[in-house]
Design a protein around this nucleic acid. Structure first.
Lengths: 340, 340
DNA sequence: CTGAAAGCGCTTACAG
DNA sequence: CTGAAAGCGCTTACAG
């Protein structure tokens, strides 16, 4: 924005037409469908040539002001340094770029107040829509946004608010796949290490686990760690799991998986001899671990693609009915399963 | 941008004053220094109260159009899923937020054409300034930006263009610290694993290494891998290093460190018994490795803080003399050093 | 097929 | 201390 921009007026002067006509010519260029304002082909060509020659770029601020649209989308994640979220961020950025949208990123760090702060900033900055990973206690904020009809989609986690787009993993299925796989490998006592947080995805993973273990005739037991005091808390939880004699562990999230496997290592437990393990999400972190780690693989591409598609659709047509899309997990095998 | 905004005009009507006065009142609120346009204290209070009551938010598009400033900064990194860059991104985002700037992110994937594409998009979108991690062959683009006086700062890597702000690590020093430490621990033959890429930071790390090994009376040898074919290429490089009988390796970047340690593991080499190792940048990835890894620690906070400060300064005052800031590394010990 | 005009919301010299 | 006016660059009914 430093230089004097070459404007529509300049083109108009040079082409000997009105600025309005230049605008028409420029905007009809692409949408060869409707063409509400027909511009003489020769005039149009002349205009387009001049625009190209001067490398004309429309001023976004002016266009936003006029159109009340900024072509900006706000993406609010839990923590962009978490592999799962940074993967999604990266893909949303790429796809948005191609759709000619800019993306603003923010991290809540699981704090509902921060979430609200970021939402407001993004909206004040003119974001046309939002993609949000809601945290605990965010029902209120989300409900307010829904009432204001802000185009948005919730990602990864559900929140008890109606009339909102949602893109979620089939978390129950994910947990079931893991439990079944462990049982097939002869594990008798599968424990689950989870968070105390009240998040839908975690709760569903837990219930999928509980159901599945019960079906197999086992006794489910969920151990919950603190998000805010991860390392220490996971260490205690792992001790409890070992004391109870579990021979397999399903971790509920990627951060728990990493911390848990680290804690197991520190306590001298071998994977899978002492305890089999299924992680949630793959991670580069596992690459340096001597034993390959089995994990639930989330469809990151689909998350990004679907979420972006839904916001843009709603921006284009605010009346559109809201959708909930459930994505399917996949289980990736590894030595940590034991006995395969 | 969905709802009808409550505007300055609305406030004016409600307060019974002109829109201009509202604007003055609103804008003088903060800068208690200059106060070019004095507004009657009572009037001002009335205006501010009304604004607050209606939760008035200025329309950014209008302000940008008028001011020719968007309060947006574009940050272009090599790859945002790399720990070093995502750490920097995260911190820039936070600091920018507090300075009331929005940040746009992009990744070049080390491709100069993509770099130019992203730069243009950001500039078209009205970015006031840029923070750029230049890649190979980007001298041209950077030089053009410099000529156009676009406020910017180069981060992490130098490029041979004058009159540009730069924030760089003292890469020679970093390599020297690593070599010295390894020699102190009795290593006789320190190899360096680097990239073929023509990047200033890598070249300086190499020359620091070469100088330092020579000073110690050793024979420096730099092995270079391909960025585009990392895993495979590093594997070959590691074989060569082993064949040459090196008893220590200094890695030139974090991606090389991870790939290299992985390759060593696969070949059954033990760290530090067979070969001592110093990585570049710490990484969560090392947490699951049985041996703690020594590494060069880059001052990520300083990178983010300094770079952001420099762009904002230059946005505020384009005439400002350009600066180059050299940051100091630190070496973090670990079992991988051997013999400590 | 083309032009003149209004207006998006804000800021800022210029008067008074 | 306050108001009227112009203008940032663009788009879009409305005329012709």
């Amino acid at each position: 924005m430093v230089e004097k921009h070459y404007t529509i007026k300049d083109i108009a002067r040079e082409a000997g037409v009105s600025p309005a006509l230049v605008s028409f010519a420029l905007n009809n260029k692409n949408e060869n469908g409707s063409m509400r304002y027909k511009v003489n082909k020769d005039t149009a060509k002349r205009i387009l040539d001049i625009a190209k020659a001067h490398n004309y770029k429309p001023n976004n601020a002016a266009r936003s002001l006029r159109l009340r649209r900024s072509r900006t989308i706000g993406v609010i994640l839990s923590d962009i340094s978490n592999d799962f979220f940074s993967g999604i961020a990266r893909r949303i950025e790429n796809e948005a770029f191609q759709a000619n949208y800019s993306v603003l990123f923010g991290s809540t760090d699981e704090n509902a107040e921060k979430l609200e702060l970021i939402i407001n900033t993004f909206l004040d900055n003119g974001a046309d829509g939002l993609i949000i990973v809601p945290c605990e206690n965010s029902e209120g904020v989300i409900a307010r946004l829904a009432k204001r009809q802000i185009p948005m989609v919730l990602l990864d986690r559900d929140v008890d608010v109606a009339d909102v787009n949602k893109v979620l993993l089939d978390n129950e299925l994910a947990a079931k796949m893991a439990v079944q796989r462990l049982c097939e490998n002869g594990r008798k006592s599968v424990a689950m290490v989870s968070y105390k947080m009240e998040l839908s995805n975690i709760r569903h993973r837990e219930s999928g686990y509980v159901d599945s273990v019960s079906e197999q005739g086992g006794v489910p037991k969920v151990y919950r760690a603190d998000y805010s005091n991860l390392e220490e808390s996971v260490k205690e939880v792992i001790e409890a799991v070992e004391a109870d004699g579990a021979d397999a562990i399903l971790f509920a999230t990627n951060s728990l998986s990493v911390a848990g496997i680290k804690a197991l290592g520190k306590r001298g437990a071998s994977i899978p001899e002492d305890v089999a393990v299924v992680a949630f999400d793959g991670s580069e972190v596992f690459d340096l671990f001597p034993t390959s780690i089995a994990y639930i693989k989330q469809p990151i591409e689909d998350f990004a693609h679907t979420a972006l598609g839904l916001v843009i659709d709603q921006i284009d047509n605010p009346e559109l009915e809201k959708k909930t899309v459930l994505l399917s997990p996949e289980i990736i095998g590894g030595e940590s399963l034991g006995g395969e």
